[in-house]
Design a binder for these strands. Sequence first.
DNA 1: CGCCTCTTTGAACATGGTCAAATAACGTGG
DNA 2: CCACGTTATTTGACCATGTTCAAAGAGGCG
Lengths: 247, 247
Amino acid sequence: MIELLIRKLAHSAFLTEADCTTLRQLNLRTREVPAQQDLIREDDRPENVILILSDFTSRYKILDNGKRQIMALLVPGDFCDLHVAILGQMDHSIATLTASHVAEIPRGIIEDLTNNYPSITRALWWATLADEGTLREWLVNMGQRPADQQMAHLFCELHLRLLIVGLAKPSGCILPLTQKDLGDVLGLSGVHVNRTLQDLRSQDLVDLRKKWLQFPNLERLRRFCGFSPKYLHLTPRVNDSSSSSII
Amino acid sequence: MIELLIRKLAHSAFLTEADCTTLRQLNLRTREVPAQQDLIREDDRPENVILILSDFTSRYKILDNGKRQIMALLVPGDFCDLHVAILGQMDHSIATLTASHVAEIPRGIIEDLTNNYPSITRALWWATLADEGTLREWLVNMGQRPADQQMAHLFCELHLRLLIVGLAKPSGCILPLTQKDLGDVLGLSGVHVNRTLQDLRSQDLVDLRKKWLQFPNLERLRRFCGFSPKYLHLTPRVNDSSSSSII
DNA sequence: CGCCTCTTTGAACATGGTCAAATAACGTGG
DNA sequence: CCACGTTATTTGACCATGTTCAAAGAGGCG
């Protein structure tokens, strides 16, 4: 299942064929984690690097007043904590939203990669810098877009990120979040998420049912929310008919 | 004025005495930039790395609807675009808010540093990862805190960041932003910023006048907004009586 | 002084939040 | 397959926070 990671890093424009082979030779210990379980807690100094293999995981913080803000959604192919070693300790927690499969990569392996494979190293840094770009876009989203566009924008982003790793169809993708979770992503109440979803459906922009997001007209949806994927810094791959055209 | 940068990187816990000497030997070309001027534009592929030496600079995006979101405030000692080389091109713009002094560091010098000075390299990566932590905290701030606490939290952060580089007093700091700018940082309208400031003043928490932020009672302000500086990842320096105690 | 920008104020409005209850969907054990 | 408890979704009514628009006042700077 390292293929997920390879598919993602392929979009960094740094990965060579040899790198792919190197990565395929890693043998990963996979484990399944139940829903709502912390993978990493604030103040931890994680020994291993965690790679998400299935389902969705969230970076979050909980405030004194009990409110939770989700600061990132991690999808398959994403790392939890690639570079915490430099920072020392986590300033937030990471938890599964649904039951998930993850791989634990000993930090030594990452260090070996970064010591001996410069292009893999650059690809890994690309991944964290692209995460930072995503974070900035989320801030724009929360600060300046009304709830319906904000939500549509999030959907467009997730759809594309899943498409990259081969986990979405052009017409839709999975979305295994409750409406409350979505609210904590968007900074909206659960109730308002519900109403906004109905609103989007009535405009025939998205249809979310049974954890499946369906886009009747992706182009219209993207125009509606002003989605432009530049901030994800994806380099279209050659030989990839499925996703390159849609970026 | 490289001292600013050194003071900041000293908090990364990576910088050695020798590193400081190395950095002091760089000779920087300084230039003054007028207010409201773009230093870097979206889609640029900057040749030089820009280091802020005075005043405040902003990362921002402007949406189709004309709204501007400021995604980061850069204070003296901060870099604009340290690692864009990996991403290829900018996904946002950077502009001065007031007239500022900046240094342009040729990318070659940075590459030389990262090739030959591992601890400086780690310190530079620490700086970008800490920026990412700040961005996450801003998201929490916008998503979950009411306007007054949100604004107070921003002030606490700026105060501490300026303290680190020796540009703030324990009781206050400069804040060279208009209320409209502040609104674009916080995702609030200029009018509401005005009212929130009055509210904070009436609670004797902060007093902003003539671009100077005064904190009658810093401890109370921090409690009010739940400020905890962990996300800035500052390692208290030894021999630094001015700021270490206040972190 | 005069111009320009920034701040301040008021009033009407819009968006989204809260609370509470009803309904629907889901998962488990029998 | 059904019955049950649990969790998630949906609805309504009311409330709070923040926005918009317009205009007046203050401050800065030539």
